[in-house]
Amino acid sequence: MNKPIIEFKNINFSYDQEDELILKNVCFSINEGQYVCLIGHNGSGKSTIAKLLCGLLNYQDGEILINGIKLNDENLEALRKDIGIVFQNPDNQFIGSTVEDDIAFGLENRCIEREKMISLVHDFSKRVGMENFLSKQPEELSGGQKQRVAIAGILALDLKIIIFDEATSMLDPQGVEEIRKLVFDMRKKDPKLTFISITHDMEEAYLADKVICLKDGEVFLNDTPENVFKHEEELKSIGLGLPFIVKIKNDLLKHGIKIDENIKNIEDLAGFLCK
């Protein structure tokens, strides 16, 4: 389980040779089955990392290893078949005209036979809870539903790595909660699935296995959420806050109340305090 699936080694990247570097000497590794959150201020290079991973951008300097294989032009086609991205805007990534068409789009591209495709579409629409909406058009769906369809379309491809590029930032709190639950189920069903979430949502980051914080294109912090959120001042300096629960814990600590490290959600905290 501890095999690194993604490794970034000294990546420098800029869109143009003369331009300022967007990524500066970025090094990190992500293990198979991990849930990693990439956080950072706007323009810190989070999305660039996602684009580099699936070959949308070419890196000039350094090495990206996926499953131990160096990503280059020759093997890009093969390697990017293991990576899927769910983007921010639910409307702009809805390709098919109906829910089922959209889930099937990626499968069509992989030349999967029709019978198998139909059963896959049904399975995965059920998994994201959209089985009753198969013939619906995107206008008839809410943002959260569209995003779930996008996730089903990615999941159906049987990928090893799934990246959420601010996938929940345009959703209402209910939509965010739905997607979070879905991710939880997804990882439970397939423990080998590596999940990278690019997010501004610190609450989500707190639930991750690992948090990588970027600052001006450099890896600033790369640790477990507990350790990352100990750097309150540094995070504040780049415009990031702390998750609610960490704030409460810190405040309680100031008043001399020590909270158990394992408590990760509000309910548990309330239970602990009532004891």
């Binding site: 699936c54 078949k81 899927g84 991205i85 390709i95 990626g106 591209n109 491809l157």
Partner: peptide, 9 residues
């Protein structure tokens, strides 16, 4: 859209 289509192969 083009990025989304590319990512889905």
């Amino acid at each position: 859209l083009s990025v989304a289509m590319y990512v889905r192969g």
